[in-house]
Amino acid sequence: MKAKIICTFLLVNFITLNMFAQEPVLKSAFNGKNLKGWIVPENNIWWSVENGILRAKSGPDKKGSILWTDKEYTDFVIETDFRYDEGTVDTGIFLRNDKEQIQMGISGSLKRDMTGSPYIVGKKYPVEAQNVKDILKPNDWNTIKVIAIAGYYEVWLNSKHVMSYTSDSYVKTGPIGLQLHPNTEMTVSFRNIKIGKM
Rank of each mutant, 00 (worst) to 15 (best):
M1F: 14
M1R: 13
M1Q: 08
K2A: 12
K2W: 10
K4G: 00
K4A: 15
I5G: 05
I6P: 03
C7D: 14
T8E: 15
F9Q: 13
L11A: 15
N13V: 13
N13T: 12
T16F: 12
L17H: 05
L17Y: 03
N18Q: 07
N18A: 08
E23P: 01
P24F: 10
V25K: 15
L26P: 05
K27F: 02
S28H: 04
A29H: 09
F30R: 06
N31V: 09
K33F: 07
K33T: 12
K33H: 12
W38T: 01
I39M: 09
V40R: 11
V40K: 14
V49G: 12
E50T: 14
E50I: 09
N51I: 10
I53G: 05
R55N: 04
A56E: 05
K57R: 09
S58L: 03
G59E: 04
K63R: 13
G64C: 05
S65H: 04
L67D: 03
T69K: 07
D70K: 11
E72Q: 14
E72N: 15
Y73M: 05
T74W: 02
F76T: 09
E79M: 12
D81K: 08
D81C: 07
D81E: 15
F82W: 10
R83Y: 00
Y84F: 14
G92Y: 06
G92V: 10
I93T: 01
R96Q: 00
Q101F: 01
Q101L: 12
Q103N: 06
Q103C: 10
I106V: 15
S107T: 09
G108L: 09
L110K: 13
D113T: 06
M114H: 00
M114G: 03
M114I: 06
Y119N: 06
Y119G: 03
I120L: 09
I120W: 00
V121R: 13
G122Y: 09
V127G: 11
E128C: 05
N131F: 11
N131W: 08
K133A: 15
D134L: 01
K137Q: 11
D140R: 11
N142Q: 08
K145V: 12
I149C: 07
A150F: 09
Y152F: 14
Y152T: 14
Y153I: 12
L157Q: 11
L157M: 07
N158A: 02
S159A: 13
K160F: 05
H161S: 11
M163Q: 14
M163S: 12
S164Y: 04
Y165V: 02
Y165G: 02
S167A: 13
S167F: 02
Y170C: 07
Y170G: 06
T173E: 08
G174Q: 09
P175D: 02
P182E: 01
T184M: 01
T184S: 10
E185G: 08
E185I: 14
E185H: 12
M186C: 07
V188C: 06
I193T: 01
K197E: 14
K197P: 01
M198V: 13
